[in-house]
Design a protein around this nucleic acid. Structure first.
Lengths: 230, 230
DNA sequence: TCAGATCCGGAATGGCCACTTCCGCTTAGC
DNA sequence: GCTAAGCGGAAGTGGCCATTCCGGATCTGA
């Protein structure tokens, strides 16, 4: 994060730029993408003016910070797709993508967003959905995954667990893992069958449409009651 | 909803009052508790002034509309607690309380809220948690529920599925049922065991703390792209 | 029918908050 | 030192919303 824009920044400017990036990353991570520009500037120990001289607006700042992070999703999808055992791959994929989201509210927000970087985000989501479809087929073939599961079931499952991760992020950052484990157990082919599932899974377009109205929770909420540790 | 405040309302005032209550109920139901007072007045076909003459502020309006609805939760908990088969009771309880929430965003919001009617809401939640604890014990005794489940696991599970209900409410209002069914299957005692669950479930205080920062999603989001129904 | 109590609508007020711009002052760098 | 680059943060904008106010419209009861 050292070579941006005009090749030669004055030393102090360079230092401030780095402070800004660090502060923004941290705030986006812990509070989501909607922290105010003023808060970011303040956390970086600079004035808002300085912030705006470096980034025309918040979108540009987000772009600078998250382009590479978004790529991590792609990377994870690839890696998990290469795991020989399909069920293991599936579990790992869900775990790792949820980890990414649980560790970084901003990234999670971005991943569900329709307001920033639309294309990059859609690409990642599509890639993941494709891989999920492949994995599902493979896992069903080996009998590790119940037969009535469709890709969108897993997308929704990930979304659900993500909601828990979000809810408990400040109090018990690992709570989502248990929820995930529980959910995964419901995916196993059932000896003592539950019941047959209701209708078909939601389809992708519907999900996308829904996401368009979605906004990550906690945004305008009362500021977290400060340190609450687990 | 005919006898309120001053015993004798002028006929037109009475009519307006009823329109307001109807409009507010509908808007709260479909959009959550944060619709603006102006929107409510407009939907009722009256001016904001009229709205405010009847209800000092939004809290009073919410109170008037939801007191009884909140009682429905209590009712459902009681009924389900009385179901002889514990597992059936458990499933029914989750289904019915989620139905209530899925049908009414305002009620869902209220149920997770710390800003309105705090006491009434906490009572209902506590009642539900107690009943869940009892049901869990019973269901585990009959071998219908895996042994490592704690009440908060189910609270969280309900929360998760509620998140799906919220997400897809406008596009596919029934989608959450499938998610719930899937999740429930994960609760069965497992022959072909998944793996042992991570740590212990989150504890109640932690969850409450988390909820304090929680805000139902979609609030400040872009207004839904109009009619999108599935 | 009519007087006056009631009620109405919606413009106006005031608060809040975030983004962005601007400009006089500071400081790095030669 | 001198000069251009950089700085801070106050001020300008715009949007959103709850709530108040009051001139005018509408009921009601005699």
């Amino acid at each position: 994060m050292s070579e941006l824009a005009p090749p030669h920044l004055r030393a102090d400017a360079q230092r401030n730029l780095e402070r800004i990036l660090a502060a923004a990353a941290e705030l986006f991570r812990t509070r989501g993408l909607e922290v105010s520009m003023e808060d970011i500037a303040h956390a970086a120990g600079v004035g808002v003016g300085t912030l705006y001289r470096r980034f025309r607006n918040r979108d540009e700042l987000i772009g600078a910070l998250f382009a590479s992070r978004l790529a991590e999703f792609t990377e994870v999808v690839r890696e998990c797709g290469a795991i020989p055992d399909a069920w293991t791959g599936l579990v790992t994929l869900l775990e790792r993508t949820l980890e990414l989201q649980a560790e970084d509210r901003g990234l999670k927000h971005l991943f569900h967003s329709h307001e920033y970087d639309r294309d990059a985000v859609t690409d990642v989501r599509d890639l993941m959905l494709d891989e999920l479809a492949r994995m599902i087929e493979r896992a069903q073939a080996t009998g590790d995954l119940r037969a009535d599961i469709a890709p969108m079931d897993l997308t929704l499952l990930s979304f659900q667990v993500g909601a828990v991760a979000d809810l408990t992020a400040d109090q018990d950052p690992g709570a989502w893992r248990r929820a995930l484990a529980l959910a995964l157990d419901g995916l196993r082919p059932n000896q003592r069958a539950g019941r047959t599932l209701p209708p078909g899974p939601i389809d992708k377009d519907t999900f996308d449409e829904a996401l368009q109205c979605w906004r990550p929770p906690g945004s305008a909420a009362t500021r977290p009651p400060a340190g609450a540790g687990s």
